[in-house]
């Protein structure tokens, strides 16, 4: 009997008796969930792409260069004197996101978001190293890399909180902002907020998994598959940031 079942299994991938995808149920469902989540993010990015291109492109900046002095009334000057921020033109991201924590009064265009991107990529690397250590059942290494991933995620969330605070401090609101088109800040808050919420959930999942690693739950179970599943989610968050970064700061 056994040999017959074995031979049909070999012939038909979809014949039953084994997973045609060659992954466990949990991992497959995580993939399917990520696909549906990707659709949600895509709808937001599609909206951004459409609204962004239905406005005129930013006015080319010829007055402020990187490392220039930044006055306290920078945004007001951009609105009233130099007229870079007007209603018909989308604002240039380099003139909006030009602050850096602890460094006041210097024009540092996109430096901070680049740092945030590096932090997130790095935490993705530590996550995949945790998964790799899980394959070798190296509990100590898994817990070390999980902790680093949690710290990276927390650092990213902190950066985002700072970015929001600065942005709101300059007068950006969900229903209006000094930079011109109203939808600019609205889209920024909704999309980065939605992404930030995902990072937050990822950090919570990572903490739960980390505690379980320390307790030895997965060692008893015989495999570290849960780390892999949480890892898939974490990489997805990083993946979304790649596109949020491209759309919001580069287009």
């Amino acid at each position: 009997m056994d040999t017959i079942t074995l031979s049909t299994e070999k012939k038909f991938t979809w014949g039953g008796g084994k997973s045609p995808f060659n992954v466990s149920y949990g991992k497959l469902m995580m993939w399917i969930f990520l696909l549906s989540d990707a659709f949600t993010f895509s709808s937001l990015l599609i909206a951004y792409g459409f609204i962004r291109t239905s406005f005129l492109s930013p006015i080319p900046n010829t007055t402020v260069k990187p490392f220039d002095h930044l006055s306290h009334t920078f945004v007001e000057d951009m609105v009233e004197k130099t007229k870079y921020f007007v209603q018909d033109h989308w604002p240039s991201p380099e003139l909006v996101f030009n602050h850096f924590p602890f460094i006041h009064g210097i024009h540092l265009p996109l430096f901070f978001v680049s740092l945030m991107t590096f932090i997130l990529i790095f935490s993705s690397v530590t996550m995949v190293l945790a998964v790799e250590a899980g394959h070798r059942m190296a509990k100590k290494e898994v817990s070390k890399y999980m902790l680093l991933t949690i710290l990276g995620g927390a650092a990213f969330l902190g950066c985002q909180a700072w970015e929001w605070t600065t942005f709101i401090g300059e007068g950006a609101r969900l229903f209006g902002n000094p930079y011109g088109p109203r939808s600019f800040a609205a889209l920024f808050f909704i999309v980065t907020g939605f992404h930030g919420f995902h990072v937050f959930s990822g950090v919570v999942l990572n903490i739960i998994t980390y505690v379980n690693v320390l307790k030895g739950t997965y060692e008893k179970r015989g495999h570290y598959e849960m780390v892999e599943k949480v890892g898939l989610y974490w990489h997805f968050v990083d993946l979304v940031w790649v596109f949020v970064f491209t759309f919001f700061y580069l287009l």
Partner: peptide, 16 residues
């Protein structure tokens, strides 16, 4: 690169 290497997709079945 993220999906292929980090998410292990390169080493999965083609169906997935």
């Amino acid at each position: 690169y993220i999906v292929g290497i980090f998410m292990h997709m390169q080493f999965e079945r083609k169906t997935l």
